[in-house]
Amino acid sequence: MYADTQNDITRQVVRAAQLLLAYGAESDLVEELSQRLGRALGLASVELSISANALVMTSLVHGRCVTTTRRIREHGINMAVVCELQRICLLAEKGLYGPNEVRKRLARIHPRTYPRWALIPTIALSCASFCHLSGGDLFACLITFLASSVGMYVRLLLAARHFNVLINFAVTAFVTTLIAQLGYFQPITETPRLAMAAAVLMLVPGFPMINAISDMVKGHLNVGISRWGQATLMTVSSVIGMTIAMQLGGLL
């Protein structure tokens, strides 16, 4: 293999690993997929070192090493991208894709998200279901639906304006809790507390938390701890937003 080819293949593989990490795959999956993709494209070995916000990769062919570093910026969770990268790896492993096809398909990846009009009602319905599952009555569920749909709208608005995720969570929790307090002031529901607890559940950092534990259990301790820290900060900032709203409403 020529040095140019090795450089090119290494670039494709590190691009795949960078995309996987940026869109929220767990470290074990990133390591496994990039090693398999590298081997399928003809590299003798691929070694990865993943840290909280960077990625170092070394590829080895015929005793020649290429090491490259990539910075990773968080782009939010997008499972469609992760799924697509898994497909590319499997196709390359079966021998259907060579380096050129992989490059073309990697260049075509762009993260698609669900439109706002679909996301807001489903998330609001989800929070209303949480309220029902924990035993809230009909009006509590309606209050939850209203509060979390407004909250989700604010959250998507702030995310589209590229605000820091912690600020975003604090403001969203504030708005949601402010509206969810309605049950305390109008005697329409027996369970105002459940409505408030359920409405902010859309801010649960599910993916960072599961990824964190999964990383730590499988031995990627430093990435796991940093993801755990991120999840904790997100929770704390939503608690701050909730507290301010409840103090404004005189509930604390």
Binding site: M79, A197, A198, I210, N211, M242
Partner: peptide, 26 residues
């Protein structure tokens, strides 16, 4: 489907998140 398992799993465990316990703690 040849997709990563966490794709389904994380969404599937969300209904079991201990929301009201966490709320009461906070």
């Amino acid at each position: 489907h040849l997709a990563p398992p966490l794709l389904y799993a994380v969404a599937a465990i969300i209904p079991m998140i201990p929301g009201s316990y966490a709320y009461n703690t906070v």
